[in-house]
């Protein structure tokens, strides 16, 4: 149990020591998104009755930060350890593959939460948010962070070079997060793209998360919870399997 706790603490400490880059920078990015998009769209777009566009945008930005930073934490930590070789420090001790998984994913969730809270605090200054169903907010943030943390573990294990990880991030994670309804409701899309969006798991994370604030969403939060939980279980099992057989970690 203690090996797990140490690994978890180390992973948190790792990003906290460079928080300017791992926390402050993404908060600033989200703030820029908010300023630009709300400036351009505030007068033209209303998604839910009685909810200004800027208010609509904030939960999406918060969740996007949670997701992207959770992914960034586990993936960058693993690839760095692999490239520099210090991954052996965690491979030599008697840490089980389950503990290994739990530590990296939990630390990813923490990083996601820290950045997400940062974004929330900064953006609250610009909008009034309602908090209709806080439990949903928490559930989707945790599950979303966990999914992206696990995905980060997979990407970090799979990638052998930094540019492979960058490709994973730029060609999979970024499109999925940007095309998930952070900036718009998918009901505003043509029917075909609405259908496509329904195959994007991140859409459900954002939609469910936003439900927690406004009590309104594109699909039922229960449906979103079902999809997101399913993704979490599948990804967890897959990642655990990779770790158990030592894929790319134990030659």
């Amino acid at each position: 149990m203690d090996g797990f706790l140490t690994l978890f603490q180390k992973e948190v400490l790792r990003f906290w020591k460079v928080s300017f880059q791992t926390v402050a920078a993404p908060v600033l990015t989200s703030l820029l998104f908010l300023l630009i998009f709300s400036h351009v769209l505030e007068r033209h777009v209303q998604v839910y009755a009685g909810v200004s566009y800027t208010s609509f945008l904030v939960p999406g930005l918060v969740m996007m930060s949670v997701l992207q930073n959770a992914f960034a934490n586990s993936s960058s930590s693993l690839i760095q350890s692999k490239v520099t070789g210090n991954i052996i420090f965690v491979l030599l001790p008697p840490i089980s593959y389950r503990q290994f998984f739990a530590a990296y994913v939990l630390a990813a969730i923490v990083r996601g939460f820290v950045v997400g809270l940062g974004v929330l605090l900064v953006t609250l200054w610009f909008v009034d948010l309602s908090w209709r169903a806080p439990l949903w907010i928490l559930v989707f943030a945790v599950l979303g962070g966990a999914i992206m943390g696990a995905l980060g573990v997979i990407a970090g294990i799979w990638a052998e070079k930094f540019d492979q990880l960058a490709a994973f991030q730029n060609f999979i994670i970024m499109p999925l997060t940007f095309l998930s309804g952070v900036f718009y409701s998918i009901h505003s899309l043509p029917a075909f793209w609405q259908q496509v969006s329904h195959f994007n798991p991140i859409f459900y994370m954002i939609d469910g998360f936003r439900y927690g604030f406004f009590g309104a969403s594109d699909v039922s939060p229960w449906a979103s919870l079902g999809v997101v939980s399913g993704c979490f279980v599948v990804l967890t099992l897959f990642t655990l399997w990779l770790l158990r057989v030592g894929y790319k970690l134990r030659a």
């Binding site: 140490t6 350890s81 420090f89």
Partner: peptide
Amino acid sequence: VVPQELVFDPFFSVRESLEIQSGYFGI
């Protein structure tokens, strides 16, 4: 095991590295 390759974790000091390594072994 003392590995052949010269590896280290650039995020930490000498003492931190040793404390973390102890923790991995449950100490």
